[in-house]
Design a protein around this nucleic acid. Sequence first.
DNA 1: GGAATCGTTTGCCATTTGGCAAAAAGCGGT
DNA 2: ACCGCTTTTTGCCAAATGGCAAACGATTCC
Lengths: 162, 162
Amino acid sequence: MLELRKDQYFSEAGKISRQVGFVLDGVVRVCYYNNKGEEITKYFIDENNLVVDIESFDNEICSSAYVQAITDCTLLCFNKRDWQELLNTIIGWDAMVHRMVAKALIQKVERRSPLVTEDATERYLKFLEIYPNIVNRVPLAYIASYLGITQSSLSRIRKNIQ
Amino acid sequence: MLELRKDQYFSEAGKISRQVGFVLDGVVRVCYYNNKGEEITKYFIDENNLVVDIESFDNEICSSAYVQAITDCTLLCFNKRDWQELLNTIIGWDAMVHRMVAKALIQKVERRSPLVTEDATERYLKFLEIYPNIVNRVPLAYIASYLGITQSSLSRIRKNIQ
DNA sequence: GGAATCGTTTGCCATTTGGCAAAAAGCGGT
DNA sequence: ACCGCTTTTTGCCAAATGGCAAACGATTCC
């Protein structure tokens, strides 16, 4: 069990991610800095979802992204040993995890892809569909950086929608 | 072994995808139609890559995308029975496939995500990095629809770069 | 109850991209 | 070489978005 305060990191770019988390309460985001130094939010993770950089965790390579709490958070937290134990204890755990991970990855693609080809307003509407419980809990700047628009644009779009 | 001619479909939206393909020669794309009826290219797949709608194949649900040959293609092709046979015959096949699939999914996210937050020129440059062997083999309209810009814009961008 | 801090909205204008249609270029068939 | 078809480029103008700074609003801390 891990408590994170707003703005604390669960894992950081450039380090190996050695823990699998499961969000019990709060919202977390995965973000990175592009080559212009802009901070980009890649996705949000809220309650009852796994948070892990699977490439980093599995292959023990450095992660390329930060995982940051954006509200105070409570996470279940497993290290490799715990994880291995679950694997040995629970029949079918391995297969189940594979499914969950595959499903989560597919979801990430399906959520991110449409953003590329839509205009800013539609992106925001998609965001609202996908993350209905997040809008009011995180700063607008993070949402803007998720959508690939400036926060002034997002503010104006909000106004236009009502 | 399956030969597809330019423009033929490997699998179609609304149908269950019952085959796993492996591209031996040619280029294939995955595409769909958004709610404005615009055709969107989600990604390209060229030689030595797997092509499968894993959700549709695994869970026998309808696919939401088309897989279309955009050059004449040669594919290795497995149906569920073949696939099962490989699974039973080759020790470690299952684990290997899980890895390949996870890796491919991660790659899709990593390739698609950056496009959201970059301007049109940078998207095109990223495309060139990611798919260096595809530019000259597919119509510009498909690339534009992959990048989420119009083909006139892409044409102008090309000119500006040289 | 201020003061400081952080987040959001707005105004102004420059830049980017889209829409549409016409022109130009490329390509295969005869 | 010519014709018909498809793809790509270009011109013109409109619409969307960005950049920047100031104003406004909310929240926290003393």
